[in-house]
Design a protein around this nucleic acid. Structure first.
Lengths: 131, 131
DNA sequence: CTACATGCAAAGAATTTGCAAATCA
DNA sequence: TGATTTGCAAATTCTTTGCATGTAG
């Protein structure tokens, strides 16, 4: 089990993610922090995000280029996202229908240890207006 | 529009993918080919896979590490996959229910230019027996 | 003939790791 | 003090690109 010590860097990252309501990449977060005058290493950002994701303090998705995006997660339950491609903001979706569908299929084909990933990407209303 | 010239390398890649019924990464395919004595460059493998994917001759998914996996695709229609984590074999799934669900949600939140990605990973029956 | 494909090596980008120095408990 | 965490730089991995050469049409 991880200790998750309360260091200054971890606090800063936590705070930023809590304020932010969209997904952000490790790289972008790092730039954001250094631009804001924080002294932090890129590796620390990666390690912190990774450890926070491990204990499910963060949601993680991958964008089309394969880059990992992180966000403080609201719901502890399993859920999916409707993510804005432009600003990264996201809605958390419950989807019992999808869960049921996935399990049914897995069973039909005899698959085990099944995990599914459902992410929807689009452009949110706010970003549509901005162009 | 792409020409997709009929070169020896493209033929070899096509053949291997046609025989293979699972997803495979560019790296793995390259190793497979060179191990089999084929003379081909890694860049060519990447470029060929990319051009084939562009004209929808291949399905593309990303595994958990972000690596791209390719497979000759059977159905021309939009579809999803139930992929074996162990051997890469996959079932193609039609899912009108999921399509409808995704569109409905996108509409509800006012999102546009929506694309969704649904992939299910698990362990197929054959691989379960092999352990 | 000539536009496109190939191979190699170098470039890129995201992420991870080794290790000494700093720091939380 | 003693175990973690940090920061930096170097190392890894996957993927893309530049460019001279080869080749399908």
């Amino acid at each position: 089990m991880q200790s998750l010590r309360n260091t200054k860097q971890r606090q800063v990252i936590s705070n930023v993610l809590a304020d932010l309501d969209g997904f952000i990449s490790a790289q972008a977060l790092y730039q954001h922090l250094t631009a804001a005058g924080e002294s932090i290493g890129l590796a620390t950002v990666y390690r912190t995000l990774q450890s926070m994701a491990e204990v499910h303090l963060l949601d993680v998705v991958r964008d089309q280029s394969g880059e990992m995006l992180f966000r403080a997660c609201r719901s502890k339950q399993h859920h999916h996202h409707l993510v804005c491609r432009s600003c990264g903001s996201a809605e958390e979706l419950q989807a019992s229908e999808v869960e049921a569908w996935a399990e049914q299929l897995a069973a039909r084909y005899g698959y085990q240890q099944v995990e599914h990933e459902v992410e929807i990407f689009g452009v949110c209303p706010r970003c549509q207006n901005q162009r």
